[in-house]
Every structure is written in C-alpha cells, then in structure tokens.
Design a protein around this nucleic acid. Structure first.
Lengths: 215, 215
DNA sequence: GTGAAACGCGAGCGATCTCTCGTGTTTGCC
DNA sequence: GGCAAACACGAGAGATCGCTCGCGTTTCAC
C-alpha cells in the first residue's frame, strides 16, 4: 500500500487518512532519505537493509516505518526528489538549442551538466544502474529512461533532418548507453583523471554524431 | 573452504580429500551449472537462491551441496568454464593482427566475435554486469576486466604509436565501456534490430578510434 | 558378493531481513 | 491544562535463504 501522504493537506482516497505531518516529521523524513542515499550508495538497493538505514539515520526501525510503508517506498521517494532536484537545477534540462549551435558545443554542454549532477548525487547512479531494482522501481526507471531518450531524440532531430524515426531512436539509445558507460568511468576516477574521462566521453559522442551530421 | 576437486586425480592439501567423481557426479555438476546459468540470467546472482537452482536442476538442496561448497563456488565454476569455452572458441581471442589490417576490419572482427559469444552465453553478461557480485567473484571479475583491458591496449598500440601509456589505458577503458553499453543494447533486441545495433556499436568504435589514428 | 565411497534426499538449523505492535513521549490546538 | 494525534522505540513475528546432517541408495573396485 503506497503512501502518498508526504505532503500534508492533500485529500486522499477513502481508505487513507491524511496524516498531518509535523515539522519534526519532515525533518525525520529528510534525515532518513539522506541516510538511505548513503547506504544505497555503498551497498546497492537490494543489499541495503532497512535496519541499516534506520541505524545510519540514528532512529529505530519502527520510526522508519512511521514514514515509509516499505523499503521500496524509500527508494521511490528518493528517486522522485532526485528527479525533481534535477529538473529544477537544469530547468528543462538540456533543452533550448537554436539550430545554429554547433554539435560539439551542444554535446559538451549536455555532458557537463549531467556529469556534474551525477557527481553531486552519486545515489542517482546507484539507483539507476543496478539490475537489482524490484517492482515499481523498475517502472520509474523505465519512465525516466524513456523521457531521457525522447529528449535526446528531439535534441538530435535538427542535426539529422532526413533520418527515419526508428533510426533516430536507435541513435538516441546508443548515445544514452555511451553516456552511462562514460559516467561509470568518470565516477570511478578523481581529479585530473576524471576530467580526462569526461573529455574522452565528449570525444566519443561528438565523433559518433559528427559522422551522422555530415552524412 | 573452497572446493578444488572438480577434476579427479589431483592431489590436495592435507586437509582435503580428492573426492573421486563418478560419471553420474560429472553429469549432475553440468546439470546444476546449466540450471544455475538459467536462474542467474533471470534473477541475477544475489537474488538467485540455491534452492531455486537445485529445483531448476531437479535435485534436492543437499545434492547441490554435494558438489559445491557454497553458492559463490557455483558462480565461480560457471564463470571459469565460460572463460575456458571463450578461450577455446576464439583461440587467443582477438589476437593475431598484422599491422597492415585496417582499423575498421579489426574492430568489426573483434566486435562480431565477442557479440556472438555473449549472445550464445547470456549468463556471461549477467555475471559480469551486476554490481551484486560478492567476495571472490569480484576478484575474478576484476581479473577478467584487467586482461581484457590489457588485450585491447596491445591491440590498440600499433594504431597509435606515439601515445603515452596512461592515455592508451584510458582509451582502452573507454572502448571496453562502450562495448559493454553496446552489448546491453544488442542483447535487448532481436533479429534485424539487433543487427542494426551491432553495426551502430562498430560505428561508434571505428569513429572514436579512427580520430585517434589520424591524429 | 561385499564393503567403501560417491550420490541423493529433505527436514530443519541458524542467521538475516522486512515489517508489526504495544507502549510510552512529544507536539499542536482548544 | 487537556486531549488527540503524530512521533519514537525496540522486541520480535513471520518469512526466506544459505547451508547441514543423518540416513538411505547406487556405483565400483576387488
């Protein structure tokens, strides 16, 4: 039974009470989500135990379940807040491009933004990457992936005017795949080495897409 | 306590008996490994239960533990046999290249071979991909990854004569990352669509590496 | 044929994990 | 101040999983 009562003041279906949160409760929720992020990062979702999350947050298991109906809901809410933060950080993300923008610049901007976000929020990668995502998490995951693909497609379209949509979709899938692989390498290194991998990721994308543009 | 007694006739350390396998036992082992491959493919390593593997193989849990000391040993042995099959299928893998071979041909040959192997043995991907690999599996994983990187480096060297080794290593890491991402997309599709993704993967690698060659 | 060892079974032990429940404390509203 | 609801606790119920153990069956060397 999912708990939609994180925000107070919303009317519910007949079988759920509003549960008016106090300031203390909101603080606990934030605390628990932060602890969950930490635990998910180090052990992954499935291996993370709710008791470990509660311990990390310095509360009892019972308290955790005061705010989340189950372990999955923690990850869902965490992912949701991450998505929200991502949207508000980048507005409409890698969106507004006048067709005059050169490809290299567009790729650089998009990669820089996403890499930056993922470096600041390593949980994002941990939640998205694992094959250990159960039930409703998978839906959320697929939805995010789909919107990402769609956005890349619209980003791509002006650069490859005559390409059939099926092929555009394929190219977008490949781009996202490349980005994920690059992100993994980037997160695995630090400092100058990390910067070098970022540059390499940009190179891969620019050269791949560049060949399609002049084609 | 790891069990090195899969092959009969080997002398052991003082604390382990040889355990002379009968033909029946070898058959059971193959049966169990096949079942494990199936279960690992559908649920991943950590989520796979030894009881499920035994059930899939049509034997009791006790019988499974007659041949494997623990769950990890199953994955280890499975990975080991997979590696062996890979080596014997491709000899020294993507090895002998006279320097006259054009880049595109080299990439095509290497990608085709690896993709083919991974399509025939989907467990390989399942075992390598998950972040859910515990203990000694991780070592095996890292070892394989390292040898793969090294091989790609030596493959790469004749094409980029003046490049410093650190950069060669980075390029190899990127290539392997790209391959993994491409493999995931390839395995997610079938028929003509799959072929198209294989071609796209080759394109990415050729264009990325091509720019380094003429550089 | 006979004995030893390999094979096979399945109930169940111990550990772990998710989630509950009874009880006590704090907070906010009148 | 008083009361209802939100918050907090932690033992433990219930389920699952890896793995064991005792005992019965099959195989094989002699």
């Amino acid at each position: 039974m999912p708990d939609k009562t994180e925000k107070p003041g919303k009317q519910q279906a007949a079988d759920e009470r509003p549960v008016r949160r106090q300031a203390r409760g909101e603080r606990r929720i934030a605390q628990l989500l932060e602890a969950a992020a930490s635990v998910f990062c180090t052990t992954g979702y499935t291996a993370a135990s709710t008791n470990a999350i509660a311990r990390e947050a310095g509360v009892s298991p019972g308290t955790l379940y005061q705010f989340f109906p189950n372990k999955e809901a923690i990850a869902i809410e965490l992912g949701s807040r991450l998505m929200h933060r991502m949207r508000e950080t980048y507005g409409e993300a890698l969106a507004p491009l006048d067709p005059a923008t050169p490809l290299e610049e567009a790729v650089t901007a998009a990669v820089d933004r996403f890499i930056d976000f993922n470096c600041r929020n390593p949980v994002f990668f941990a939640l998205m990457h694992g094959p250990d995502i159960p039930g409703r998490m998978a839906e959320e995951h697929d939805a995010l992936h789909a919107t990402l693909i769609t956005r890349v497609e619209t980003l791509l379209t002006p650069f490859v005017p005559g390409m059939p949509t099926a092929e555009v979709n394929r190219v977008a899938q490949v781009c996202v795949g490349i980005y994920k692989a690059g992100l993994e390498l980037v997160l695995a290194h630090e400092g100058a080495e990390r910067e070098a991998y970022v540059q390499e990721l940009k190179n891969v994308l620019v050269r791949y897409l560049g060949a399609l543009v002049v084609d």
